[in-house]
Every structure is written in structure tokens, then in C-alpha cells.
């Protein structure tokens, strides 16, 4: 397990190191370029802030009103069959539909069950390994005005489910 941890921790510093060395060798004005990109990052976060506020309120309300527990209660028997933790279910359902929505749900799950707990790890892994499938398909097909999308949605959702089941499995093995 310590090797896995080492690789996980090495990934980010190593990537940054390689890129900066590359920039220096190619005589790029590294810091100016960095600032240019960092300013863009500022804009991205500010643009998703209103979405996050709206969704955090909605998801907080689902949780605090107690209705989420009722929904989870009903689907738990079904999930137990495939050994999928019911705490993760709200995230699994929202992840393909909304990017910022799933950030809100994932944060909610981590807060409730602990970020370093098994459930928190699974939520993190699912967030990192899946995309907003419906949104991606929508923009890619609409930009070329294609109506007959064949089985693209089905194939992508099947793969999302596989990704989520693997996330649960690998976090169970690691803990």
C-alpha cells in the first residue's frame, strides 16, 4: 500500500516539475506564462460559484429535510444485491447529469461520512474517474447537428457504471 501512496503523492509534483523544466529548456518566460494561465483559473472558479451556491442549498435541503434518507432507505435492498454502498447512490445518480451538482453532492457525502473514510474515498474516486456524460454527449452531437446518435448514450452510461463499481472495489481493497 505504501507504493500506491507514494505514486499517488508523486504524480502532481512530478508533472509540475517536468512541465517547468520543459519551459525553462525551451526558454519560455515561465512565470509570465504561469500568471496568464492562473488568471484564467480565477475566472473559471468565479463562473461556477453561483451554480455551486444554488446546488449546495438544494442538496443541503434534500439531506436536512430527511427526504434523502427515505429515498436511500427504499433503494438500499436493491444496492445490497450488487454490494454498492447506498451512501454513494445520490452521487452516482447525479454524476452523469451535472458537473457542479455532483461536486455539491460529493462534498456533502465527504462532510457527512468523513473525507478519509471509506465512503469519502469512494466518492473522491468516482468524482475523479467519471465525467458529466450527458453534457459531453449533448455538446459534441449538437455542434455537428447530428440527431441520430445511435447507442452513444447507452455505451457511455454502461462504462460509467463500470467505473463506479471499480471505484468501490479499489477503495475497499485499499482500506
Amino acid at each position: 500500500m505504501s507504493i500506491i501512496n507514494f505514486v499517488s503523492n508523486l504524480a502532481m509534483p512530478l508533472t509540475i516539475l517536468i512541465i517547468i523544466i520543459y519551459g525553462v529548456i525551451e526558454k519560455n518566460k515561465v512565470f509570465d506564462t504561469f500568471l496568464e494561465g492562473a488568471k484564467e483559473g480565477l475566472g473559471i472558479v468565479i463562473s461556477i460559484l453561483p451554480t455551486l451556491i444554488g446546488l449546495f442549498v438544494a442538496i443541503g435541503a434534500l439531506r436536512s429535510s430527511g427526504i434523502l434518507d427515505i429515498i436511500i432507505h427504499f433503494i438500499t435492498p436493491l444496492l445490497n444485491v450488487c454490494h454498492f454502498p447506498s451512501e454513494i447512490m445520490p452521487l452516482a445518480m447525479l454524476r452523469p447529469i451535472s458537473g457542479s451538482g455532483s461536486i455539491a453532492v460529493a462534498t456533502d457525502i465527504m462532510k457527512r461520512y468523513g473525507v478519509d473514510s471509506n465512503i469519502g474515498m469512494i466518492a473522491s474516486t468516482i468524482m475523479g474517474s467519471t465525467e458529466t456524460t450527458l453534457y459531453t454527449i449533448a455538446i459534441y452531437t449538437s455542434c455537428v447537428k447530428i440527431k441520430k446518435t445511435r447507442f452513444v448514450l447507452l455505451a457511455a452510461l454502461v462504462a460509467d457504471i463500470v467505473g463506479m463499481i471499480v471505484s468501490v472495489g479499489i477503495c475497499r481493497i485499499m482500506s
Binding site: 505514486v7 504524480a11 473525507v115 474517474s129
Partner: peptide, 21 residues
């Protein structure tokens, strides 16, 4: 997100994410 939630090791999930991806 993990960092903001006070995780003791936010980057711990990198390897599991790779496998799942």
C-alpha cells in the same frame, strides 16, 4: 475538494482514480 474538507492526505486518491479510469 478533499483538501478543503480537511483530508490528511488529499492526493491519496490519485492511484485509485487511475485504476478506475
Amino acid at each position: 475538494i478533499r483538501h478543503s474538507m480537511g483530508s490528511t492526505n488529499p492526493t491519496q486518491i490519485v492511484f485509485p482514480v487511475w485504476i478506475a479510469t
